[in-house]
Write a protein that binds this DNA or RNA. Structure first.
Length: 398
RNA sequence: AUCACUGGGAUAUUUUC
């Protein structure tokens, strides 16, 4: 079983779900019997692929087969539900697991706390933390990181420190199995802090965090990610010269920029109205450029009404095998709509479908706005009817 | 022996003067 499990894990990790299920369905029977771990791995993979209904069905299968689901099984499902904005279902799942005699552990709690914070439901996050303490479950560094992330994103870093202090006062102290694990977690902690600070415009403080990381006393070296959060912060603050200086200085600090760093810069230039510089950096990236780098430039061109160049870039992506996703199409559709080129916009809308790219809320909003600009209200209604016919749900995004 | 939780980049709308 273990061998099969290892194979399935590897296939799932590479996103080869089909093949993983093939092994499970056609190759395992007769050779060995799937165990909980086999199911756990498949359920987790289904969740990460957004196939929550199938994952839940599999949980039922497990129970029906007389196998006891473990805390892994439930944690995977809860995580899947959380990441797909079904927080309340996640909470129900937690109750279900308890009623079935399976107790949640740190990971389960961390997952829920993170979800509540990310959804801005801070009070409920604290309730879960209390439940966790009550159940005698010790927090880990991940717990602390989740709290820091939750509070620093909304500019409430001081509150974050306060919460952590209180936890420590009460003896609710993170446990780590080894020194290395602790240091790795601290890198995440510092990066979260730097990110929270730079996203709220406190760039000096963000630099301070970077310097702290560099301090030999601290011994948790910053990496590409910690630099990139600062670079992005500088870009968003329109300090592009400084951002480039930081990028150039990275090698002196033991790291070098990657696609993400470059994309942050590219986006910064495009948003600041210097698309040409953005385009130039895209060329520097060469084949390392990904959908993010391209979409930043596509949007830049569109906002400047340089639609021909956007169009050519979109074609270039296809020919280079960097398949455009919804965001790329949306950026161009928006440009076309705002330029009152509705026909072309609908062409592209058709085209994305032909390329197997599913339109999302933003796509439809763009097209509806385009119709509105031209005063074609009745067409908007037709479009909405069409959407409903294709099974679109009007959810919270609306 | 194999499985679950936390860190960086892109697109629309959100009465800016």
């Amino acid at each position: 079983v273990v061998i099969f499990n290892l194979v399935i894990v590897e296939l799932c990790r590479q996103g080869r779900l089909q093949e993983a299920f093939h092994v499970f369905i056609s190759e395992m029977p007769g050779r060995s019997t799937p165990d909980v771990v086999t199911y756990n791995v498949l359920i987790d993979a289904l969740c990460k692929d957004g196939k929550l209904d199938l994952a839940r069905k599999m949980l039922r299968d497990v129970i029906q087969a007389g196998i006891r689901p473990t805390v892994y099984t439930y944690s995977s499902l809860i995580n899947g539900l959380c990441k797909n904005h079904q927080l309340d279902h996640a909470k129900n799942m937690m109750e279900e697991m308890i009623s079935r005699g399976c107790n949640p552990n740190v990971v389960t709690y961390n997952t829920l706390v993170d979800a509540y914070f990310t959804q801005g439901r801070t009070d409920e996050a604290y309730v879960v933390l209390e439940d966790m303490a009550e159940s005698g479950c010790h927090p880990t560094m991940v717990t602390f990181n989740v709290i820091i992330k939750g509070l620093s994103r909304s500019g409430r870093i001081d509150e974050g420190y306060k919460v952590l202090d209180e936890m420590i006062d009460k003896g609710f102290v993170p446990v780590a199995r080894s020194h290395n694990i602790l240091v790795d977690a601290l890198v995440v902690t510092f990066t979260l802090l730097a990110d929270g600070l730079s996203k709220t415009g406190k760039l000096d403080a963000a630099f301070g965090v970077l310097r702290m990381m560099e301090d030999p006393q601290c011994r948790c070296n910053h990496d590409v990610t910690s630099f990139t959060v600062v670079v992005d912060g500088l870009c968003k603050a329109k300090c592009l010269g400084e951002a480039e200086e930081v990028v150039d200085a990275m090698p002196d600090h033991g790291t070098s920029p990657d696609v993400v760093t470059y994309s942050a810069l590219i986006n910064g230039y495009c948003k600041a109205g210097n698309v040409d510089r953005g385009y130039h950096l895209l060329r520097e990236l060469g084949t390392k450029a990904d959908v993010f780098s391209y979409s930043a430039v596509l949007d830049g061109f569109c906002k400047e009404k340089r639609l021909q160049e956007a169009w050519d870039l979109l074609k270039e992506m296809r020919s280079l095998g960097c398949t455009p996703n919804v965001v790329c199409y949306n950026a161009v559709i928006d440009g076309l709509c705002k330029a009152k080129l509705l026909e072309e916009a609908y062409h592209l809308y058709q085209e994305m479908d032909d390329h197997g790219c599913t339109p999302d809320v933003v796509t439809h909003n763009n097209l509806l706005l385009g119709l509105t600009i031209l005063g074609k209200v009745e067409h908007s209604l037709t479009h909405v009817e069409e959407m409903i016919r294709h099974g679109n749900k009007f959810s919270s995004g609306w």
